[in-house]
Design a protein around this nucleic acid. Structure first.
Lengths: 127, 127
DNA sequence: GATAGTACTATACTAAAGTATAGTAAGTGC
DNA sequence: GCACTTACTATACTTTAGTATAGTACTATC
């Protein structure tokens, strides 16, 4: 095996830095799913809970606050009676589209792979 | 605001399912950085720690085991004296390239955005 | 013989993420 | 007046992620 060069190492960190910046903002089980839900237009609190199966009110409340602070989600209060609260994406969070598409495609690929491996194992065990 | 239609909801879950499949495998602070490090060829334990700043031995050990179980990393033991252990990507984990590229680009964009917002705030505060 | 490197594991801990359950203050519909 | 909805918050808890520090068994090198 060849030794890791200085060049290679600095090339590596030039990828790692922005990747970790992204992960810092998007980490956890819920943030991206919430954003996916909001790509279909502005939604109310309970509408999001219906899309994102399994999330609790507490988590959704917390994650929406986080996303708002990071400039990825806007909270709007319409002062009708009763008060309506809606959440929507910012232009900035719409640039996450490519990330979501990539994760989606890879998720599909990964599941396919798992099924394939599973089949192969069955064939082997029949011998 | 228009009501969420059934159609929209099922379209949403068709994206959400694979995205969450991906997140289940890739979650946490370290897995993707480790994979990025290994995209530059097979590496030894300490080489990875040098790339991925801040990771502890314990975490790297655990995450490599996780990745191996998920078929994303291969562990090879060369029975030379002393024993050499190397880690490398599988063909399957190489398909993560698009995910990594997307996260990298978004990370760069996000940092740019933060700097911009920071400047604007400075201008405002000068008034 | 001392020091350093490799590839870890062990132990103990903190912090963050996530879950479960309940409650509230407002209004709507019957 | 009663059940129901909306948009949450509060409290308490468990689980997972991550950190800190030390140790081991081996070899290599000075």
């Amino acid at each position: 095996m060849k030794k890791t060069t200085e060049e290679e190492h600095s090339q590596c960190t030039s990828i790692l830095r922005p990747v970790r910046d992204s992960l810092d903002v998007l980490n956890g089980k819920w943030k991206l799913p919430i954003i996916v839900s909001l790509t279909f237009g502005e939604k109310r609190f309970t509408d999001i809970t219906k899309d994102v199966h399994g999330i609790t009110d507490r988590m959704l409340s917390k994650e929406l606050r986080d996303l708002e602070m990071n400039g990825l989600v806007v909270r709007k209060i319409q002062d009708t009676y009763p008060v309506k609260v809606t959440y929507s994406l910012t232009p900035h969070s719409k640039t996450l589209r490519t990330v979501i598409d990539a994760l989606r495609n890879w998720g599909l690929l990964h599941r396919k792979k798992l099924n394939q491996d599973c089949k192969e194992r069955k064939v082997v065990s029949k011998k």
